[in-house]
Design a protein around this nucleic acid. Structure first.
Lengths: 243, 243
DNA sequence: AAGTGGTCTAGACCACGCG
DNA sequence: GCGTGGTCTAGACCACTTC
């Protein structure tokens, strides 16, 4: 039970902040106090506090202390990877998934470029419409390298593909690059979504990599304009501009 | 010159990766090797490598090593805070700023709510259109608490307000919350931007906080649909779902 | 078994804010 | 001067990969 002390500390304090037991604007105990509280070393405490700061729960000021922020419980944290399934569970939405297609096809030029593979290489194409509170709002188009994901089915696609990939296939998904832009609505969007008379659609492109740094999935999530939101938390870097 | 060794290591390696001296897919020296290379301790090296991982330069795998990624130099890194001025400089765009208004006004209900102040509290309202390559594409509407920013002028607004705030007023901007959504075009958008016949516009709302955790600025950046892009780098958290 | 990264410790000194 | 957070050290043990 003494494993990952810093995660324990992180979870304890993020819970307290989310539950309002620690009021925004107030100070956390000092690092030394927390060190004593958990009977651990200061570097371990600092690791936990830095995580809290990274997630927007607290803000640290040298010479003063760590302050509780009021944006720890964010409305829509897409920052980081989070699947549709996790999201809807988190917000208690009434959701449904409509699988339009699960098919192994040769990659067309566009997809081949996105996945960095030769054209006509076989890929799984999965097309799903997401219904939230009675309206079809999101169109997910996934492409998987079929050299890595050998089998797929409508059955799997109607649940969580990620659970299948990580649970059954034991793939280790490690990081992703995400791009948000706006495109014109296509005939397919119109066919599969409740689009009213919108002419544009928000497109979130997601390039997903495995632990061995191979790109194995490309996903295009097409969101109806009026239902799209993205929230981010950013820290300003003083002095050097790192990025 | 031996200050902030971990930043030194971070900068050295991020430079090497950006310049292509370290090829994507190859391995970095082990943490122990780098420790020797810099004559420092392993925790310091790890601090640098974790930063590199956070910025998407490398990917660490337990038992194997740290691998160079090819997405370190991203096209459009708004992740983090970056101003229009920094952006255009970075990409060498031909840009112009048109100041429409710099005025101290009583906050209306909407702005008061955003800034968490009583209605009619005085704020500076700054409205600027950004022209890129000959087209007015972005409309920036800034609101500053006038209790913190006492003076402002068209002169300042036409350059970088942030340089003024940080350089002259010595304000310490520490973090921000960013929200991206899509709204319907307003008459003001039409008046100040080259909107063609778009009916919607991408809105980036930015809540900016000072080091003492006071919210002092609210900015609404309105981007023409076809010119908007946002790129993010995300890591998957195994095991516990932290956020 | 050897090498890798992940966690942790018990100290140390420094930079900063405040009374 | 004291308390705060920021950096750093020289070790230790563990989990994982590879041979």
């Amino acid at each position: 039970m003494n494993k990952n002390i810093y995660l324990q500390i992180f979870n304890d304090y993020s819970d307290k902040i989310q539950k309002g037991q620690l009021v925004p604007g107030t100070k956390l105990p000092s690092e030394n106090d927390i060190t004593v509280e958990y009977g651990t070393s200061r570097e371990t405490v600092r690791k936990a506090l830095n995580l809290l700061a990274q997630y927007g729960y607290i803000h640290k000021v040298r010479g003063k202390g760590s302050y509780v922020l009021d944006i720890g419980r964010m409305d829509f944290p897409i920052t980081g990877l989070i699947s549709f399934k996790q999201m809807s569970k988190k917000f208690g939405w009434d959701t449904k998934t409509h699988v339009d297609e699960v098919k192994r096809v040769p990659a067309n030029a566009e997809v081949a470029r996105q996945l960095h593979i030769p054209a006509n290489e076989p890929v799984w194409r999965v097309t799903r419409a997401r219904e939230i509170e009675g309206e079809r709002i999101i169109l997910d188009k996934d492409y998987f390298l079929s050299s890595i994901v050998e089998q797929l089915s409508e059955e799997i696609a109607s649940h969580s593909i990620y659970e299948y990939l990580e649970g059954v296939l034991q793939l280790k998904i490690s990081y992703a690059k995400k791009e948000i832009s706006v495109e014109e609505v296509t005939a397919e969007d119109r066919r599969l979504l409740d689009l009213h008379d919108f002419n544009h659609i928000v497109v979130v492109k997601n390039y997903v990599f495995l632990e061995n740094t191979t790109l194995f999935q490309f996903t295009e999530s097409r969101h109806r304009l009026d239902k799209f939101q993205f929230v981010d938390f950013a820290r300003r870097v003083h002095g050097e501009d790192l990025p």
